[in-house]
Nucleic acid binder design. Structure first.
Lengths: 188, 188
DNA sequence: ATCCTTGTTGAATGACCGTACAGTAAGAGT
DNA sequence: ACTCTTACTGTACGGTCATTCAACAAGGAT
């Protein structure tokens, strides 16, 4: 009779990241503690450090997971629908809901003061920016794609922040319309 | 020989808010503790609760102070220069620097999980939105001022977030240009 | 000079924090 | 059936946390 189930390192890591992410979504960074995460996952207190080295390591891993789960894989799509997929994906119920955005904002608040998280952010953002820039450049416009991509990302982030702090003031359709209105002058 | 100086309630509150804000700017929400704030202010540990009731009360007061210190008083300006003043003010060195933005992002991360801060945010944002909407409406355009104001605020917030997380990737001039490019199509 | 309001102190409390680590056991490989 | 790797447990540790509260004193009022 096994006293505990022994998972592969990969599976256990995934479980702990999921549980930690759910905590961040529900209660912000205050929920991100060894006790609460291990209790919610049903494992002992020592397991997080075994798999992630430190709480900062888990935080960085959670950030990467959130990025991967909520940003579309643009290069896999035909060039002409990438921008639309970005907008639809960013404001789809899976990404654009209070819980998920709560986790985003909670993580943003830690980036400046957590070196491991900071490095992970640099990595993820750089890849994300490159994808959006490529999606714009692929349309073959005269405009400079890079600053346009930066601005679009900033607008999306701002809209997400707004929805998180005040959901009824920024519904998904309004947010999509704002992005399209922003892009329209540049797309002719 | 006085063992301590006795300030008016107003002065002591202002001092504690300033010290707390400086801590948020320097080290994020981790610096927002009774011990650190009181030590930095040179007062005893009991004083914060005497003046603010709780740490959440101080947090809400700090948020209001940050809002007041970094947003321009638009109604006091002539209508035709208000939007420009908003952009210049939002990205002036006083507001658009890593420390100040670090405090903003740290506070955003707490809004969803701190009722007192949440209420303060609703108050401040509503007043801010009204001012920006009025600044747009005063120009007498055909466009609907309210959604435009919301989008502009989101863009500004997103640009601030970006600068906070990655300053060199989003200098002030780039941010201003993004705002002007956003507004241009609507201003004719 | 005395009183009174209230700003201020600082110790006490009980809960929670992340990390270290020595020991346990699961389950695949042989 | 045995070994070996390593996932896993759970206590212990030194700090830090917000809050409470009874006592103290500063300084204006009278």
């Amino acid at each position: 009779m096994a006293r505990f189930t022994r998972l592969s390192s990969e599976d256990r890591r995934a479980q702990l990241m999921d549980v930690a992410l759910a905590g961040l979504a529900k209660g912000g960074i205050q929920e991100f503690t060894v006790d609460r995460i291990c209790a919610a996952a049903g494992v002992s207190r020592g397991l997080i450090l075994h798999h992630f080295g430190s709480m900062a390591g888990l935080l960085a891993a959670v950030y990467a997971r959130l990025y991967r789960d909520t940003t579309p894989d643009l290069p896999a799509l035909p060039p002409e629908i990438r921008l639309n997929a970005l907008i639809e994906g960013s404001f789809s119920p899976k990404s654009f809901n209070r819980d998920t955005l709560n986790a985003w904002v909670a993580l943003w608040g830690q980036i400046a003061n957590t070196p491991a998280l900071r490095e992970e952010h640099q990595r993820q953002y750089q890849a994300y920016l490159a994808q959006v820039t490529e999606a714009i450049a692929a349309l073959g416009l005269q405009a400079d794609a890079l600053p346009l991509a930066r601005s679009l990302i900033c607008l999306i982030d701002g809209l997400c922040l707004q929805h998180c702090l005040d959901p009824e003031a920024m519904p998904a359709e309004t947010a999509k319309a704002a992005c399209r209105a922003f892009l329209a002058p540049h797309l002719g």
